[in-house]
Every structure is written in C-alpha cells, then in structure tokens.
Simulated assay, not measured.
Amino acid sequence: MRIWVDADACPVPIKEILFRAAERKQLETCLVANQMLRVPASPYIRAIQVPGGFDVADHYILQQIKPGDLVVTSDIPLAAGVVERAALAISPRGELYSEANIREALSMRDFMESLRSAGVQTGGPAAFGPADRQAFAKRLDQLLQRV
C-alpha cells in the first residue's frame, strides 16, 4: 500500500498524523500539491509538486494509484475516481468513501454546487477541530492494521 495525499487543502494536523504513520509502518507516503511542500527527511515521505491548474494534483494522483493504495482527500470527485480504481479514499475528517456511499456524496456535492451557483449562501464545512483529527487517526489506524 502507498499513501497519496491531496495536499493542497489537507490540514497540517492530518499531515503530521500521516508522517508518523509512514515512519511507523514504513509506508511510502506521497504528498501531491501545486506548491512546494516541506516534509520531514524520511525515506518514506516525499512531496510531489505538480503544475498549477484546476485539478492537476487530482489527475496526477489518479494516474499513479494502484488498487489497494490509500488516498487522503476532501475532494469528492477525486474520491470517486479512487473508488473506481479499487483504491481506498478517506477524508481528513475520517470518512471512508466506498462504492456504497460515493454516489450519495457526489449527489450532495452537486446539489450544494447548484445552490451556490444560484446565489444561495450555503456556508462551508464546520471548522476542523480535535474531534475531526481523532476521527481521522482512528480510521487511518483501522486501515493500516490491514498492512
């Protein structure tokens, strides 16, 4: 298993959890972003900078993943592509995307997007907090126990 991180919007506490997990489990962890990222010196952790542009990091991740890899992303269309390729996708809040729930997540995303484009103020997600960090760490541990 290789861990891929859609790193442009990934919260720092989640990156720190992933860095520790990569070292502990000796798993290659690749952070993909449009900007240069600082990562700890480690044979297991690397940052990959892709050109700027809409969904460039997402497309790179989708081209590189293999079945059984793990992708950390809050991007629902990317998560759908990951699930289609028989890989695992989890959000920074610890939600595991699967064939059973990805269509609903895509539908909700599209619905909210249509509301926003019609001028409706939908607000954003709740602030990222300790409960989210804990949910992510718990889900990650569950997934890595398989390795």
Rank of each mutant, 00 (worst) to 15 (best):
Q35T: 02
Q35E: 04
R38P: 06
V39P: 05
S42N: 00
I45G: 02
R46T: 01
R46E: 11
I48V: 14
Q49K: 11
P51W: 05
G53C: 12
G53Q: 04
G53N: 02
D55L: 00
V56R: 10
A57G: 07
D58P: 07
Y60H: 09
Q64W: 01
Q64T: 03
P67G: 08
P67W: 06
G68Q: 01
D69F: 07
D69K: 11
L70R: 04
L70M: 05
V72E: 01
V72I: 13
D75F: 11
I76L: 12
L78T: 01
A79P: 06
V83C: 13
V83T: 04
R85D: 02
R85S: 09
R85I: 05
A89S: 12
I90Y: 11
P92V: 04
E95T: 11
E95M: 09
L96S: 08
Y97S: 14
S98R: 14
E99V: 13
R103N: 15
R103T: 04
A105R: 15
L106Q: 11
S107R: 14
R109S: 13
D110M: 09
F111I: 04
E113S: 15
R116V: 03
R116H: 09
R116K: 15
A118C: 13
A118Y: 07
Q121S: 14
Q121K: 15
